[in-house]
Design a protein around this nucleic acid. Structure first.
Lengths: 300, 300
DNA sequence: TCAATGGTTTTTTATTATTCTAGACAAAAA
DNA sequence: TTTTTGTCTAGAATAATAAAAAACCATTGA
């Protein structure tokens, strides 16, 4: 019960690795130095040292710590099964919602999600609390959480908000200095777009990734933590929706490539007016696509 | 330990209130009806009914539940001390940071905050997880949380982001139909501003609230959950910073009133160009004020 | 026959208790 | 002095647990 000692186990093995570098009988660094080396508190380091002494790996008396023998594979401590990655939970969660088309107003069971995502319950709760800031989920009066989900309103507001941020980014990009990395990125993107256009008949589904890269590049001009945070979610949602709505995919992507190229042209010409118009047109198309994919699913 | 029965206690009293309306010997509604009435699960309702039967308030046999006597004040169940409001935790937390000028990179102790705000630990964790979406706090590698706080970068990015949102709102407002509530709100605000201008010598500190109302009105034109969510935090931060930086407060507020009036004038003239310029000027002033208040505190 | 209701059980949530970890302090050594 | 260690206290992560929700099934009564 209670807190796991995964940290101690990891630290112990890390210390063994460090000792392997050391020559036998060499004095070991001070406890606080070892803390820095394995990135853990002195409490844990001392626990590790105690075990090493017990296993006759080191002689430890006061400040004198000496390696007695080279550590072997058997000395290593087993990692408790779990070690489940709670990284990219966000991505996995959104992927789940969009791929399985979880409908709006679905109650979310923390217990169930915790099992399927192999993540401790409390971590999921914190994650959901974070998502509630984006209005994607909300607490229920009876307790627990509920997916507000991709309703029509949500999609409209998301698209509008995205448009506000991205038009701002476009305006900033026009004013970017010549040595700004955006210009070389745009050149590469232009080439990629033209290349894809040539093999569009077969590779039209490769557009989704390109789209994400393109919008990422545009938004990278704006150095703002709030924008960046939103962008992460926005792009993920648009990305999966694109993957998912297969109607007229080739035609849509072909049109989108043309729209992207128009934006690149206008940006490189430093023509704010034209760039804004081109961006607005493309964002409008995106919004329409997102909405129609929702409509399609409402019928299903 | 474990979950409290506050819900049961509240439900029981609510049921008593409901019974008080009933005439004695009257049959009570079905369990599921009672659930809807008090907004609680059947499990809790049945626990309440069991207690009512035990206290000889009702006769209960199968579907036949009859009130035996009118409930008295003594029948009520005591609410367990706590009932601590975890509402407006956000406001209280930001208030604490800004009022006590908690510096950036301060480690936040969940245990301590939990005590001082009288809120269960896990609720605080969820709250902090939410705030981390705004980049105001972050997890530490060693565990726990840390206030990233109001650094210069944070203030700049916050101001910029606010400007993006608010300029968008201004552009929307210009296009708002004549019967949109914004116009009457602006008329009232104009009068309020003029009134405050007349008594500025004595009441200049009343501007802070007026400022919040003004920006709230402008932003109310944009109906967007993302904007609204951010606006809550943004306005709170600006609000407290205004309250807090006392240098040249009268002169600053007087100037700000003039800037507000210029925005109102331009909006009512439906002049997008002028409105944008006026708004941009005001936002720039705000940003400068916010930054200088930080500089002032850095020295302290 | 069937919808609504009640008894019962299973599952999930909220919260505490517990173990591990971090950090602080003072004594000891260099 | 300055650094290092022994000791202690407070805090964080997590499992255990009581309460609540929800599902299930039998029963009632139209």
């Amino acid at each position: 019960m209670a807190r796991t000692d995964a940290r101690y186990r990891e630290a112990f093995n890390a210390l063994l690795d460090y000792c392997a570098e050391l020559s036998p009988r060499a004095p070991m660094p001070s406890e606080s130095k070892l803390c820095e080396i394995v990135g853990v508190s002195r409490t844990v380091v001392r626990r590790c040292l105690a075990r090493m002494e017990e296993k006759d790996l080191i002689a430890w008396e006061g400040r004198d710590k000496r390696l007695l023998r080279a550590p072997t594979a058997e000395d290593r401590i087993a990692q408790q099964g779990g070690l489940q990655r709670s990284t990219n939970l966000e991505q996995r969660f959104l992927e789940w919602i969009l791929k399985f088309d979880v409908p709006a107003n679905t109650p979310l069971s923390v217990a169930e999600l915790s099992r399927s995502f192999k993540v401790p319950q409390h971590e999921l709760k914190e994650f959901l609390a974070g998502l509630s800031r984006f209005g994607l989920v909300a607490r229920r009066k009876q307790g627990g959480w509920m997916l507000l989900g991709f309703t029509r309103d949500f999609a409209v507001e998301l698209s509008d908000f995205r448009a506000v941020l991205e038009l701002h980014a476009v305006r900033q990009a026009v004013d970017a200095p010549v040595d700004h990395p955006i210009w070389s990125r745009l050149e590469i993107l232009r080439a990629d777009h033209l290349a894809l256009m040539n093999r569009i008949e077969t590779d039209f589904h490769a557009f989704s990734t390109l789209d994400e890269t393109f919008h990422g590049a545009i938004n990278s001009v704006v150095k703002n933590r709030f924008v960046a945070e939103f962008q992460k979610v926005v792009s993920l949602i648009f990305h999966y929706h694109y993957l998912w709505d297969k109607t007229d995919e080739k035609a849509r992507n072909e049109a989108a490539i043309a729209e992207h190229l128009a934006i690149i042209d206008a940006l490189e010409a430093r023509d704010e007016e034209a760039a804004t118009i081109a961006a607005r047109r493309h964002l409008k198309t995106s919004k329409t696509t997102l909405l129609s994919s929702l409509r399609y699913h409402d019928l299903a």
